[in-house]
Design a protein around this nucleic acid. Sequence first.
DNA 1: CTCCAATATATTGTATCCATTTTAGTATTA
DNA 2: TAATACTAAAATGGATACAATATATTGGAG
Lengths: 233, 233
Amino acid sequence: MNEQAETYDDWIYDQVFGAVLEQRLIPGAKLKESELCEVFGVSRTIIRRILLRLSLDKVVELRPNKGAVIATPAAEDVRQIFAARRLLEIGIIEDTCKHCTTADTQVLKDIVTRENAAIQSGDRSGAIRLAGEFHVQLTGVARNKPIQELLRQLVAQSSLALALYEAPGHLLCVDDDHINIVNAVAGGEAVKCRDLMAHHLEKAEAEMRLDAPQDNNDLKSVFAKVIEARATA
Amino acid sequence: MNEQAETYDDWIYDQVFGAVLEQRLIPGAKLKESELCEVFGVSRTIIRRILLRLSLDKVVELRPNKGAVIATPAAEDVRQIFAARRLLEIGIIEDTCKHCTTADTQVLKDIVTRENAAIQSGDRSGAIRLAGEFHVQLTGVARNKPIQELLRQLVAQSSLALALYEAPGHLLCVDDDHINIVNAVAGGEAVKCRDLMAHHLEKAEAEMRLDAPQDNNDLKSVFAKVIEARATA
DNA sequence: CTCCAATATATTGTATCCATTTTAGTATTA
DNA sequence: TAATACTAAAATGGATACAATATATTGGAG
């Protein structure tokens, strides 16, 4: 992971979240506390604290007495998450334009550069992560901490959804949306920003396969076709 | 408290939050874990989990190795919180109008009724709590769970701010904003809703004394006047 | 052989214990 | 008397131990 986390807690949080993005942990996967303890060399006290945070961010689901699993947002959930992002990100971008400094522009361009590098090197999870970081950082330019924090949560959920619903191979083509947004923001072109962001978010949502159930875990659906073929044969 | 919390955790959370609204716990007040343990008859494990949740909702501040205190949002923080609320609540109200059923209307009217009863009986904290519940419930009508959850967080922070910055005695006069909003929503008058909500939120923010520091704890500011008077005499 | 019940194992939930850090108190000295 | 260093008490942070619950396994009956 390329993030420098402040505390060890944050680092573990990031490692788990990163494993979700890399699809080494798929939705529905069980997160056994004792295993996480061994992996990270800490006691259950720490692990349980991190699982609580992850659950509040809707990245994992905490089932009472039955342990934690990676969340499986339904298609409708994802639509709502993106609707929320549109509300926040389009609503705030005018302020973003107003407050954007050259230092902000530089940070954003740097993220886009690293994002494109990740895409070209086939680093899917890195690309998802950096795309998320871009949106959070961009929103932070508006200098409204609560909104940035709320967006951080939504982006975490979006990233999980992306890892779940996006067709593999997709998202590995560089597109200019992010850099175009940076330039429009740096130029203070509020109206153009709004349009770019609106189209970008719509495109991002449209690229996901929210129709196909995508149940990687449900063995029945995975093997449904072969079973049926055998039955009719 | 009039909330029926699902779990004991939630109930304790609510009790602490309620104490903040009642100003029995003022910003800066220390939350000693062992005392909370005694009060609620649970171990520190539980208390620490609840303090973590409260800190993620920015109601308490968790200072490493130095314990938890009630958060003291600065005036600028409060402005940002209200800016965030305007973004969410005004942005979502069109959807609220679209989806509002008669059952929704009834629930909302009931809350307003209880809120006015609280105001007239001088129950300040109950009024603040019910006002918050009204906004969260109203937003929930739009059927977007993430947005409702984000607003819940903002409302919690607003309520703390209200308890901090609102002039005592204020807010104890019934006004018709909430019931007017319910009626406009029930009537599907999207544009009118937008205006009512915009004015309502502006009024709510304006009623707070964000200029006066209001540091109840800072003895220097509390005694600043008498000290200065003595010095010049 | 399959299904169900009983038992055994494993996992989660909570309380407690120990180590570390902070805070309060006290005494000593300039 | 004021300031500071030192000591003692208390609070927090983390790990562990114990209790409650869920899951897996085994044995038996149909």
